[in-house]
């Protein structure tokens, strides 16, 4: 393609893009809660002048990281994935 045709193609694309934009608006994938200025996103676990947890001292999160004993509980998504070992598995997000 010559420079000239590149410019024409680009100009056409820009013109088409501007037509696509009319009335389209920004699509959003946000929930209603987030639309409320997403305060829920900001309000949690800010830096605080104290240990954030009222359970302080109770060793609530007392896990032994070396002996891994938890399995992903997962939400009930039914999605087939191909793993590194080449195996296809379905519903891997249900309890293992």
């Amino acid at each position: 393609m010559t420079i000239r045709t590149t410019n024409l193609a680009l100009a056409a694309a820009v013109a088409a893009a501007s037509l696509m934009s009319v009335g389209a608006g920004a699509q959003t994938a946000n929930t209603d809660k987030e639309r409320c200025y997403g305060i829920s996103m900001a309000g949690k676990n800010d830096c605080a002048a104290t240990g954030n947890n009222s359970c302080a001292g109770q060793a609530k999160a007392d896990y032994d990281a070396k002996a891994w004993k938890y399995v992903a509980k997962g939400s009930c998504m039914n999605m087939e994935v191909t793993l590194k070992d080449g195996m296809k598995r379905k519903g891997t997000l249900t309890p293992m």
């Binding site: 240990g51 947890n53 009222s54 302080a56 109770q58």
Partner: peptide, 19 residues
Amino acid sequence: HASIEVAGGESLLIDTHDR
């Protein structure tokens, strides 16, 4: 602040800012 029980019946106050 909150109060928690420590071993031996001793209690400890924790600065929780949650009440």
